[in-house]
Design a protein around this nucleic acid. Sequence first.
DNA 1: CTGAAAGCGCTTACAG
DNA 2: CTGAAAGCGCTTACAG
Lengths: 340, 340
Amino acid sequence: MSVRSTATIADVARQAGVSRAAVSKVIRNAYGVSDDMRRRVEAAITELGYRPSIAARAMRGSSYTLGIELPTLANNFFDTFVRGATSALAASPYQLIIAPAGPDHDNGPRAIQALADRNVDGILAVSPAVAPEWLEALGSSVPLVMIGRHDASDHYDTVVDDDLLGARLATEHLLGLGHRRIAHVTLTPEAESGLPQAPHALRTAGYRAAMERAGLAAQIVHVAPTEEATYRATLALLGADPSPTAIFAGHDELAMGALRAVAESGLTAAQCSVVGYDDTDIAAHPLISLTSVDQSAAEMGRVAVGLLLERIAGRGTPVHHVFSPSLVARASSAQCAGRH
Amino acid sequence: MSVRSTATIADVARQAGVSRAAVSKVIRNAYGVSDDMRRRVEAAITELGYRPSIAARAMRGSSYTLGIELPTLANNFFDTFVRGATSALAASPYQLIIAPAGPDHDNGPRAIQALADRNVDGILAVSPAVAPEWLEALGSSVPLVMIGRHDASDHYDTVVDDDLLGARLATEHLLGLGHRRIAHVTLTPEAESGLPQAPHALRTAGYRAAMERAGLAAQIVHVAPTEEATYRATLALLGADPSPTAIFAGHDELAMGALRAVAESGLTAAQCSVVGYDDTDIAAHPLISLTSVDQSAAEMGRVAVGLLLERIAGRGTPVHHVFSPSLVARASSAQCAGRH
DNA sequence: CTGAAAGCGCTTACAG
DNA sequence: CTGAAAGCGCTTACAG
């Protein structure tokens, strides 16, 4: 395998005794090349260890690169998503690159912009807090698929799970187990720029609606997006009177904090159940066994890449793909036994 | 914030009433520009929302991009590593992009090559199974820093933790707790292409040496690199007679499987302790509380980026940076109580 | 089917 | 300090 070839298209052309245009056609699999010419060019390419310069190609046509912006790598959901995306790209000429947004709030757009600056052929992004107008402008100049947004966009596609339904599934699961005092621990609205269509805002709405349908009072607690913050908030909840017999956490990492508080308080799942969201790998681990809402991350990755390839192929009309989440029940939720 | 500007350097030059060379100097912060000219150019850039084309810049000079190849995103170690790397880049003009290698064995070199093809200014890579010769060739044409390799390389730098020491710390920790029958569960050698200098091979050697010094017999079990495989292997170990009172796992994910088998067998840490390697976030979680060897991932990321920037700045002599790991003792390891 | 020529958007010497 | 010109390695019409 060659490493970084010093050979250019001109070298290959000379070696094969053809024009540079001919070499270009061969490497792009364009038509209008005789078998004989193709053979000679391919031989020259092998002999010289020629590799096309992506930078040069990007200036004229395609960069053969798809970029995906992620807010963090720490979330297992994204790993699964990326694997799904990669698998959908296996037979294509595209290479996937990831631009991590980093911790700062404004780094989402910055990382997305960095991808656009690099002439990627298409962008996949997870950025709940970016303004739709900015995305519309971006989508007008480069194929764009946003993950986890419920926007009714014109110039980009969206792939999202039905957060309203997911939250309903979680809440009704707990209601079905006999729980009546169910608290919802979620992110502060600012974490999503206060957008009412953002995933966690919708999950909260779904929870609230399910509680209302059951004739019960909703109890919503806002926390910083960490295990630790949820741990402390849950301890406070469990120390109150009356205290909840079940906690629906906005995502699995929060649920881990709730789980810890429950365990430390010496309570069983029957006394205080916990349900998360995302069904990350850790939720499935037998030592954790967290009931959670599954978004089928891998399938989302495949679908998102599919939409992006369609856009690259010329589709201009927006597609909004909504996945139906499902609940995976595990040991962290159990029939309500009441307290004391 | 602009999105994808259609303006080129020529547009800016026209708008500002200067030459394209002048604009180029301003955006590169090169000297030889009057204050007045700089002001006019900057005004034009803002007005037109101009953003330099990275592809065009890459053809002539720098792509302002650093690439990092990772075998997977699932490992928490890498997330921490990337955050460390990003923090070291904050003040620089470089953007970090990640090329995930994917599950297939040969995808490491493929992803690294994809970065080289894209004219990145430097490469960071985690690829234990690539041949040193290939890396030497690559390092001769692009600044390269390899993570987790003990190679005595000429044309690339290495950043690695002292796996021999880490394994010794883990083993001696268990010995100090009174354990005598300590099994080591690790990856099959093929997972590292059988390289004796590979991380897990060295950890095994470190374990073996510590056991020998204590006058004890080593017991080494090879598994596939999954929680599940380690779970089953540990169950088998615990069912044997005599069975180990402690297990040192090659990394934390394996340790999670061992932990599960121990818990399911109804054994306490005093009856069968477990120690992992990497000190991932999950190890620290109170519901898991896994004793583990810490490699200071974030610091490794910072150091690796530092070395890469030095290479980009012109250093040609190789640097091999070795980190000293430390043991983080938690509840999964305890004073040996024997069995039955 | 094949190739000469123009041009993508920058940076780099080189004059002035 | 400033700018005209060449050139980086490709692809794209356009002739032949």
